[in-house]
Design a binder for these strands. Structure first.
Lengths: 185, 185
DNA sequence: GATAAATGCGACAGTCGCGTCGCAGAATAG
DNA sequence: CTATTCTGCGACGCGACTGTCGCATTTATC
């Protein structure tokens, strides 16, 4: 029985295709229709509904899927200097591309969603930024809230730019550089 | 006959109310319905349609209105150092709040709109950034395209933050500071 | 080759936003 | 006060998106 986990084989493949399509399409226009996503996934609208009954169900699934990819990273870099961790997140985020754009395009898109721990991630970020401050990588004159907002803005921007103008790693380098210099003492 | 210009009196007032409401609502969710905007403007949907026949007509009107507010600035600061001009834009932009969020939330929202001179504004920005580079305020390692994208990102972020967390002028200061340091040699 | 799983197609009703009316009441100008 | 302008209300048809079916077809599993 492969019921609950990730469902092996063909089943898992189309599921992923739909999620990827949703990320790609919704990253650019969150009001895009399910037809548009099905088309992008090269799947009939019926099939899409077989995997995700609701529009909401697809949103939720994409949300947890995207967050899961972010969480994969956490463990490796736990005890590095805080600013290095932030840099790591930034680079990893840029690599995630559409998923990140989907996640951070609109701060209140997921308000009230049980899977969106508005506090959780934010609390971790605050702690990280505060640690970076103690370690001398962030100036005292920078409010924590601004550092966090700027972090997401830079991440989002780099992810977006690397879809068009600049190669991914160049965009990531620029993002890292810009953020470090913006908040440095 | 007050036909074409800005239409005096009550006429102009409701028109502005609708535009303001559209900016406020669409800044947060561009797929919001006209009903939502009418409600925000404290006006019936009928009245809204009397002023703007189309959804598109309202979008266009808000676009030109917002751009017009930006253009008001241009003349005063023509011969200042380029980076000071950019700073001026940044501060003025933050003050415009929702209008700026509406304008710059999605780079391709207005693609193909006759009022949106994708080249015009972009060309001016490129020239400004290049001048700032010559004047030594922007490092050579920073691609012009990144400087421009980052500028809008910081502007957008500051405008958004100043709606919630931080006082307007503080957000503006932080934005200016962050941008200058990000691109400085 | 037979069985089961996955998919596509087309149709359906339901909902929502849109744009347009006409009419009646309120606000304003003269 | 009267005529004009501005506004709100409710209705209508239209189109798009949504969620759900049943049935036929392809694909894979054994």
């Amino acid at each position: 029985m492969t019921t609950d986990q990730t469902e092996r084989g063909a089943r898992a493949r189309t599921r992923q295709a739909v999620l990827d399509a949703a990320a790609a399409v919704w990253a650019r226009d969150f009001s895009a229709s399910l037809s548009a996503i099905a088309e992008r996934a090269e799947v009939s609208r019926s099939t899409l509904h077989r995997y995700f009954t609701d529009r909401q169900a697809l949103i939720d699934a994409l949300l947890v899927d995207s967050l899961a990819r972010l969480d994969t990273l956490d463990d490796d870099v736990a005890d590095a200097p805080a600013m290095d961790v932030l840099e790591y997140y930034l680079r990893a985020g840029v690599d995630m591309g559409d998923r990140v754009i989907f996640l951070f395009a609109d701060p209140k898109r997921f308000e009230g969603n049980p899977n969106w721990s508005d506090d959780d991630g934010d609390e971790d970020m605050r702690a990280l930024v505060d640690r970076a401050r103690v370690e001398g990588a962030i100036a005292d004159r920078i409010p924590t809230s601004w550092a966090i907002t700027l972090f997401y803005a830079v991440l989002y921007t780099a992810a977006e730019v690397s879809n068009q103008d600049l190669p991914r790693h160049v965009a990531a380098d620029l993002a890292v550089q810009s953020f470090r210099r913006s908040v440095a003492p």
